[in-house]
């Protein structure tokens, strides 16, 4: 079990610079699926890097499973517990085949060969790249590459997975594949931290954290957050179309609250119409 805890965290790269993260506190429990939203430059990616000890706070503390990211002796342990998947699928491959790529991380972690083979088999099967183990990365689609990257992280048996806009460079099919994989990891109890610009993706999560100027300005359950779409509209976020329509209906008193699943909403309209 790995709880993530940030306490009064401040961060900047250089003294002259403004704070990138300022006085940020948050607790994330094992098994939560948290979306981190915010515009470019709001500090989302910095927060992710603070959590897996790629960066350490200028002041304040970040702990993962009670271990501080400031403790040099714990850094590798924390990175293994909190794995990260980045945006560009082409920047994450180091080896010539998917199998060697997954093995790379395991080798670095000093996993024995027998155990390594077992973990490669189970991680690749879980994310559905077991039939691609001998494929060369450039022959894979974007979605397949991202799933291979996820398998590489998964093989290290993390408690937490951080996705930093991991679907931004994918086509709609690739996005679906990666979202389905996240859902499945979530069901297995892995904590998911998902940095995204896509509200459709945030709708899938349990909790929404919204960042602005290095601070958290909203932290609530997803279903509560999306009941107030004005918050997003004011910040120039593009609401999914079915929520835009509902916004007009709510404002005109035809609907009292928002249904957050498109099919469910369409179905409710269809039922109300058949009752005429």
């Amino acid at each position: 079990m790995s709880t993530i805890e940030c306490k009064n965290v401040f961060f900047k790269y250089t003294d002259e610079q403004d704070w990138i993260i300022q006085d940020l506190s948050i607790t994330i429990k094992q098994g939560e699926w948290v979306s981190i939203l915010g515009t470019n430059g709001s500090g989302k990616s910095t927060l992710a890097r603070l959590i897996n000890a790629l960066l350490t706070p200028t002041s304040g503390a970040v702990t993962v499973a009670g271990k501080s990211t400031d403790d040099e002796g714990e850094i590798w342990n924390i990175r293994q517990k909190a794995g990260m998947v980045f945006q560009n699928p082409d920047h994450q491959f180091v080896a010539a085949t998917v199998r060697d790529d997954i093995a790379f991380g395991l080798e670095n972690a000093g996993v024995a060969r027998d155990e390594m083979l077992k973990r490669i088999a189970s991680a690749s099967e879980r994310v559905g790249v077991d039939d691609l183990l001998f494929a060369e990365p450039h022959r894979l689609s974007g979605g397949q590459k991202q799933r291979a990257a996820i398998a590489g992280v998964l093989a290290l048996q993390p408690d937490i997975m951080i996705f930093d806009e991991a679907t931004a460079m994918l086509d709609p099919k690739g996005r679906k594949e990666v979202m389905a994989t996240m859902k499945q990891l979530h069901e297995r109890g892995i904590t998911i931290l998902m940095i995204t610009h896509e509200l459709e993706e945030a709708l899938e999560s349990d909790r929404v954290v919204f960042m602005e100027h290095g601070k958290i300005i909203n932290d609530s359950k997803a279903e509560e957050f999306f009941q107030k779409p004005e918050f997003l509209v004011e910040r120039d976020f593009h609401l999914p179309y079915f929520l835009q329509v509902q916004k007009h209906l709510v404002e005109n008193g035809f609907q009292t609250n928002y249904l957050l699943d498109e099919d469910e909403w369409v179905k409710s309209l269809c039922t109300s119409n058949s009752r005429m």
Partner: peptide, 20 residues
């Protein structure tokens, strides 16, 4: 062809089917 239909069309068609 694995392409998404724009939501306005997708929703419009579903509503049409139930007599809206």
């Amino acid at each position: 062809m694995n392409l998404a239909v724009p939501p306005a069309v997708r929703i419009g068609m579903a509503l049409r089917r139930s007599n809206w």
